[in-house]
Each structure stands twice: as C-alpha cells, then as structure tokens.
Amino acid sequence: MAARGLSSPLSLVPGAAALLLVLSVERALALPEICSQCPGSVQNLSEVALYCKGTPELMLHARCCLNRKGIIVGLDLQNCSLKDPGPNFSQAHTAIIMILPQDVTCPGDINAWDTVTFYINNQTCEAQRNLCNSTGDPEMCPENGSCAPDGPGLLQCVCAEGFHGYKCMRQGSFSLLMFFGILGSTTLSISILLWGTQRRKAKAS
C-alpha cells in the first residue's frame, strides 16, 4: 500500500508533458533579436507588461510581448541607453505599443500613432494608425488591389485574388514554371555565349 501524501509516478506525467510542450513551443519560436537587444526584461508595472498580461494569448519574453506565433505585439526598451535602435528595429513593425528611450523617436513619426506620450526618460507609442483609412487618395491602390497597413507610417497594395503583376493588371495566377523557364533559358544562353567567346580568345592567344 502506497504511503499517503506521496504522488504516484503516473500523476506526474500530465504536468511533465505540459512543461515539455511549453518548452518545445518556446524553442520553436525564435526570439526576434530586437527583444534581447537590451539586457533585462520588461518591468512588471510597464505599460507593455500590463497590456501583455491582460490578454491570455500573449506572453512576455525579454523585452517583448509576443503572440503565439512569435509576432511582436509590444516592445519595451526603456532604461536602455540607445541613441539608435539599430537594424533589428524593423522586426517590431507589428507592435501595438512601444516604450522607447527619450532619444529614439516612434517609428513612422508621431503621425503614425494614435497616442504618443512623452515622459522624462522615455516615450510611449500606442496604437498604430491605419494609413489606408486616413489617405485621401482614391488612386493609391489599383482597381484590382486593396490597401493594407505595413508597419508604422507605411502601407502596401495587395492584389485581389486572381490578379498579379504591375498595378495588379494581370489576371490569373503567377506562373512560377514560366518564370523559372525563361530565367533558366536566358541564363543558359548567356553562359554558352560567354563560354564560346572565352574559348575563341583562348585559341587566338
């Protein structure tokens, strides 16, 4: 008879399996470099931490708040001596909220965010504006395309289904076979031409 108060090995299996699942998910999602650009982690009372903890699907890792797909939703770089956020800053183009050092401006400038709050040592950029709604140019995107946000202060034109090419004017799916066929035959022709030219020069000398 087993002693009371001791868990049987079988009762530990679900907990161990859950732990292994969490660890495997975290390893599968490569942490973007911008999240660990500054040492330390997001402070508990940070607006990014509060936002992240308020949504069950989000999780804090280093300086970032990520969704289950590993996409950056929040970035906290306060208490970080940065003058320039560096080339990895573009990884946070999906962020809904950012806390940045005083010398680092909100990406896309003030007009790209609904709220920009300045503090003594940092600034907070909240809620990216959808430029597709604010632009007054009806010809911004072609007839067969639609406007879509592409980061702070940026937008892109996405072709409707069944259209592709310049200004989405070509109908039908993009033929990869034709593209690589033309590319391959062109490369082969140039290679043969160069080989023949070099061979003639070698014989002449």
Score class of each variant (00 low, 15 high):
Ala3Pro: 12
Ala17Tyr: 14
Asp76Arg: 01
Gly54Ser: 06
Pro107Asn: 13
Lys83Ser: 15
Pro85Ala: 08
Gln102Glu: 08
Gly108Cys: 02
Glu143Ser: 14
Ser36Lys: 06
Met140Asp: 09
Leu19Lys: 08
Asn111Gln: 03
Ala92Cys: 03
Arg4Asp: 12
Asp109Pro: 00
Arg199Glu: 15
Cys147Ser: 14
Cys65Ile: 09
Asn79Phe: 10
Asp150Tyr: 14
Ser175Asn: 02
Ala17His: 11
Leu20Trp: 06
Gln198Asn: 13
Gly5Leu: 13
Lys201Glu: 12
Gly70Tyr: 01
Val104Tyr: 00
Thr186Cys: 05
Gly196Lys: 06
Asn79Gly: 11
Met1Cys: 08
Gly70Pro: 00
Cys38Lys: 01
Ser81Met: 08
Thr105Cys: 06
Glu47Met: 06
Ser173Tyr: 03
Ser7Phe: 02
Phe118Asp: 06
Glu26Gln: 13
Leu20Asp: 07
Gln102His: 06
Thr197Pro: 02
Gly40Leu: 15
Asn44Phe: 15
Phe179His: 04
Gly86Asp: 08
Cys141Thr: 13
Ser134Val: 12
Leu19Asp: 14
Leu12Cys: 11
Leu6Lys: 02
Leu21Val: 15
Ala16Glu: 15
Leu194Asn: 11
Ala16Gly: 14
Arg68Ala: 02
Phe179Met: 07
Pro101Ala: 08
Leu50Phe: 04
Gln43Glu: 06
Ile99Tyr: 09
Ser191Glu: 15
Asn67Met: 01
Ser189Arg: 10
Phe163Leu: 07
Val22Gly: 03
Cys159Gln: 01
Ser189Gln: 13
Tyr51Asn: 02
Leu10Trp: 12
Asp114Leu: 01
Leu177Thr: 03
Gly184Ser: 13
Ser7Gln: 05
Gly145Ile: 13
Asn122Ser: 07
Met59Glu: 14
Met59Trp: 11
Asn67Trp: 03
Pro9Leu: 11
Ala112Gly: 00
Ala30Asp: 11
Leu75Gly: 00
Asn144Leu: 09
Ala204Tyr: 01
Ala28Thr: 09
Arg199Met: 10
Leu50Cys: 06
Leu155Pro: 02
Glu161Ile: 05
Leu21Asn: 14
Cys159Tyr: 01
Pro9Thr: 08
Gly153Thr: 10
Asn144Ala: 04
Ile71Val: 10
Leu176Tyr: 11
Thr124Gly: 02
Arg200Cys: 01
Cys157Thr: 06
Gly40Gln: 14
Cys168Asp: 13
Thr135Cys: 09
Gln102Thr: 14
Ala95His: 07
Ser7Thr: 04
Met178Leu: 14
Ala148Lys: 15
Leu12Trp: 09
Leu50Val: 11
Leu155Ser: 08
Leu10His: 04
Cys157Pro: 01
Gly86Ser: 05
Pro142Thr: 11
Leu155Asp: 05
Tyr166His: 12
Val22Ser: 04
Pro14Ala: 05
Ser41Ala: 10
Gly54Trp: 01
Ile182Phe: 11
His61Lys: 15
Met1Ile: 10
Glu26Thr: 10
Thr105Lys: 05
